[in-house]
């Protein structure tokens, strides 16, 4: 596969390691009520869609950036890739 790195352009997926569901960026608030249940969800439960999926890839043999890649798990079509830090910073605003 080729990952469209937002800074570096198309790069071979062999340069990356895969983590999984981008929901892992949404770490629950540890001080909120019911934090343990929220963490349980966060740690153990993942969507595994047959279709479009937002997932985390790490450019290990590259610029060490974490990317949020939107990929169709059925066709492997890649619909987009963003720097995770931008996604997170954008969500915080």
């Amino acid at each position: 596969m080729l990952i469209p790195h937002p800074l570096l352009g198309l790069r071979d997926a062999q340069e990356f390691t895969y983590l999984g569901d981008a929901a892992l960026m949404n770490r629950p608030d540890p001080d909120a009520p019911g934090a343990e249940a929220a963490f349980c969800d966060y740690v153990f439960l993942r969507d595994n869609p047959a279709g479009v999926h937002r997932e985390l890839w790490y450019h290990e043999q590259g610029d060490r950036s974490w990317l949020v890649v939107t990929r169709n798990t059925l066709t492997h079509e890649i619909l987009g890739a963003e720097l995770a830090s931008d996604v997170k910073a954008g969500a915080a605003q």
Binding site: L8, R11, Q14, E15, E60, Q61, G62, D63
Partner: peptide, 9 residues
């Protein structure tokens, strides 16, 4: 460019 070469970075 930074990339892999024979499993080396």
């Amino acid at each position: 460019v930074r990339t892999g070469l024979e499993h080396m970075s």
